[in-house]
Simulated assay, not measured.
Amino acid sequence: MSNDLVLYTHPMSRGRVARWLLEEIGQPYRAELLEYGTTMKGADYLAINPMGKVPALRHGDTIVTESAAICAYLADAFPQAGLAPAPTSPARGAYYRWLFFAAAPMENAMVTRNFGLNTTGDQQRMAGWGSYDLAVDTLEKAVAGREFLAGDRFSAADLYVAGLLGWGLSTGGLPPRQAFQDFAGRHASRPAAVRARELDDKLLAA
């Protein structure tokens, strides 16, 4: 299989998180910029992701969509980067837990609240996130006073959660709690995170 890595992205998208992960693994990759409403909905890209959304990743003949799935895939595909606990490690459970908590319950809670929707009564039992306040409090407990979410080293779970926190704090989707600011700020200062931001910011400025 070809090891060519191609990231389909836009600088105003979740593609920023996928690019950060690619910068962390240190493998050569190509970023293909797509535009909302045009190339993102064109036939060529819809053959890659029928949702017409970014990011998507091509690794040789393998296609991966959904930003958390891209992070998990790359962490396993390039184990030398050390971005995932070993499958037999006790930390693997926490790694999966917080990576996918951020990608599903937490993000859903933030987006629905942004749409002006708040779960009540039976809706909270049906919704995977319960309520916005419950999801926020759960995330705060996860990151408060901790450097890493899974084991004793940085992982794709830390990257994904830090990216979500940065987005939520900058847009008002999350309250400016100190635990959120500390966790996001600490990991956003990593060299790979800085490189990824600079690359996407250049695209915005172009």
Results as ranks from 00 to 15, higher is better:
D44R: 14
D44N: 05
Y45T: 02
L46Q: 04
L46P: 08
A47R: 14
A47M: 09
N49P: 13
M51R: 15
G52M: 07
K53C: 09
V54G: 08
P55W: 12
A56T: 08
L57Y: 05
L57K: 05
R58S: 07
H59K: 04
H59M: 01
H59Q: 02
T62P: 02
T62M: 06
T62K: 15
T62E: 00
I63L: 05
I63G: 03
V64K: 02
T65K: 00
E66Q: 14
S67H: 09
A68C: 10
A75M: 02
A75K: 05
A77E: 03
A77R: 13
A77K: 11
F78C: 07
P79H: 12
P79Y: 14
Q80D: 10
A81R: 10
G82Q: 05
G82A: 05
L83N: 03
P85W: 07
P85G: 09
P85E: 03
S89I: 15
S89V: 11
P90M: 14
P90R: 15
R92H: 07
A94G: 04
W98D: 00
W98R: 08
L99T: 03
F100Q: 03
F100C: 03
F101W: 09
F101E: 00
A102Q: 03
A102D: 01
A102I: 04
A103K: 08
A104I: 09
P105R: 08
P105Q: 06
P105H: 08
P105V: 11
M106D: 00
M106E: 02
E107A: 09
E107C: 12
M110Q: 11
R113T: 11
N118Q: 10
T119Y: 03
T119S: 07
T120P: 03
G121Q: 02
G121A: 10
D122E: 12
D122F: 15
Q123E: 12
Q124H: 08
Q124T: 15
Q124I: 13
R125G: 01
R125I: 12
A127W: 14
A127K: 10
G128Q: 02
W129S: 00
S131D: 01
Y132Q: 00
Y132E: 00
D133K: 14
A135N: 04
V136P: 06
D137F: 10
L139E: 01
A142L: 15
A144V: 11
A144Y: 06
A144D: 11
R146D: 00
R146N: 07
F148N: 10
F148Q: 00
F148C: 05
F148P: 04
L149P: 09
A150W: 06
